[in-house]
Design a protein around this nucleic acid. Structure first.
Length: 108
DNA sequence: TGGATGACGCAGG
DNA sequence: CCCTGCGCCATCC
């Protein structure tokens, strides 16, 4: 059963280590779809409905901005989840993003 | 089958 | 640093 891009995204996102973050672009690229970063985000809209919960809060845009926070149950939830894992967030942006970034291509 | 959609990325001002 | 516009492309209806 061919797993759609969605499913591949879900599985990869679930592999993101606690206390680390990843970006839509990095995920898309690791799946061999460099230009479809938007699809990654689009896939995440299903994250809330997906069965094994997906740590979508660990996925931010290439700048470390919490662009998808409005898709959570509450806009504050995303930041709170990140801070609960030891990730500093300021002004909707992940601090030390470059350091915390988990690139599947490099670390998997 | 075709066209709209979108939790992005990058370049330019 | 902030904002704007354009391109990308799998999925949905």
């Amino acid at each position: 059963m061919e797993q759609s891009f969605y499913d591949q995204v879900f599985e990869l996102v679930r592999l993101i280590p606690k206390g680390r973050v990843s970006s839509y672009g990095a995920i898309a690229k690791s799946l061999g779809a460099g230009g479809s970063a938007r699809m990654v985000g689009y896939a995440m809209s299903n994250a809330g409905a997906a069965h094994p919960p997906i740590p979508a809060h660990r996925v931010v845009n290439s700048s470390g901005l919490l662009t998808g926070k409005f898709h959570f149950k509450t806009p504050e939830l995303m930041q709170e989840l990140l801070e609960a894992e030891g990730i500093a967030v300021k002004n909707d942006k992940v601090q030390n993003f470059r350091t915390l970034l988990w690139d599947p291509l490099l670390e998997l």
